[in-house]
C-alpha cells in the first residue's frame, strides 16, 4: 500500500485534480448553456417538449462513441473531452430548469406580471429563485454522472483518473484500477455534498420553511 503511494502518489494527486477540473469545466459550461436555454424553453412549451426529447435522443448515444466521434473533429486532449462531457451534462440541467420554471405557481407569475415586473425582473426576482431547488437537483445529478463518465476522457487523451483505470486494464494491475475508481467516487460524493450545501444556501428563506411545512 505504502509502496503504491510512494510510486504513484504524486501522479494520483495530479490525475485527481485533472479529473476534477475536466468535470467542473464541463458542468459549468452545461449550467451556463442549459439554464438560460431552459428558461427560454419555458416560454415556448410546445417547442420545448419536442426539443427536450431531441436532446434526450442525443443522450442515448453511448458515451464512448461520442468521445470517438470527437476525435476527427476536435482531435485529442482536454478540450474535446470537456466538450463531450458538456453534452452529457445538458439534458438533466435543461430538463430540470424547464420543468422548474414551468411549474412555478401560475398565480405568482401572473401577480408578478400584473404588478409590472418586466420579463427580466420576472425571471431574476421570481422564477429563478422559485425554481432553484429543482434546477439544483438537475445540476447535482449531472455532476455525479459526469464525474463517473469523466474517466472515459482518458480514452481521447483528456487525462484524469481514467488514465489509471485504462493503465490497470492494459497491464492487468487491479491496484491501478482501484486507484482510479476510489478517488473518482470520493470526488463524486464530495461534489454532491458541496452542491447540496450550495443549494441550501441559495434557496430563499421563505421556501425552506414552506417545504418543511408541506
Amino acid at each position: 500500500m505504502m509502496e503504491f503511494f510512494t510510486e504513484h502518489g504524486n501522479d494520483l494527486m495530479i490525475k485527481t485534480w485533472e479529473h476534477f477540473y475536466i468535470s467542473l469545466a464541463a458542468i459549468l459550461l452545461g449550467v451556463l448553456v442549459a439554464v438560460p436555454l431552459g428558461i427560454m424553453l419555458s416560454r415556448t412549451p410546445k417547442f420545448a417538449d419536442r426539443f427536450i426529447s431531441f436532446v434526450g435522443i442525443l443522450q442515448t448515444i453511448p458515451s464512448l462513441a461520442i468521445l470517438a466521434f470527437f476525435i476527427p473533429i476536435m482531435g485529442v486532449g482536454k478540450l474535446p473531452a470537456i466538450l463531450a462531457l458538456f453534452f452529457y451534462s445538458l439534458l438533466p440541467i435543461l430538463r430540470n430548469t424547464y420543468i422548474g420554471v414551468r411549474d412555478v405557481d401560475k398565480g405568482v407569475v401572473e401577480a408578478g406580471k400584473g404588478m409590472g415586473m418586466s420579463n427580466r425582473q420576472s425571471i431574476v426576482k421570481m422564477e429563478l429563485p422559485l425554481a432553484l431547488p429543482v434546477i439544483m437537483a438537475g445540476v447535482r445529478l449531472s455532476t455525479v454522472y459526469l464525474i463517473g463518465w469523466a474517466t472515459l476522457a482518458a480514452f481521447i487523451g483528456g487525462g484524469g483518473l481514467g488514465d489509471f483505470i485504462f493503465d490497470g486494464l492494459n497491464l492487468y494491475q487491479p491496484a491501478l484500477i482501484i486507484a482510479g475508481t476510489i478517488p473518482a467516487t470520493i470526488l463524486a460524493v464530495i461534489a454532491d455534498r458541496s452542491l447540496a450545501y450550495l443549494e441550501n444556501r441559495l434557496t430563499p428563506e421563505g421556501l425552506k420553511d414552506s417545504y418543511e411545512a408541506a
Partner: peptide, 30 residues
Amino acid sequence: PVELRRSIGYVIQQIGLMPHMTIKENIVLV
C-alpha cells in the same frame, strides 16, 4: 405595458404572494 401595470393595482384569486419574499417585501413589491 410594464409602466402601465405598475400604475394599476391588481389582485387575483390565487392571491399570488411571492413565497420567497417576506410580507413586507410582498407588500412593497411595486
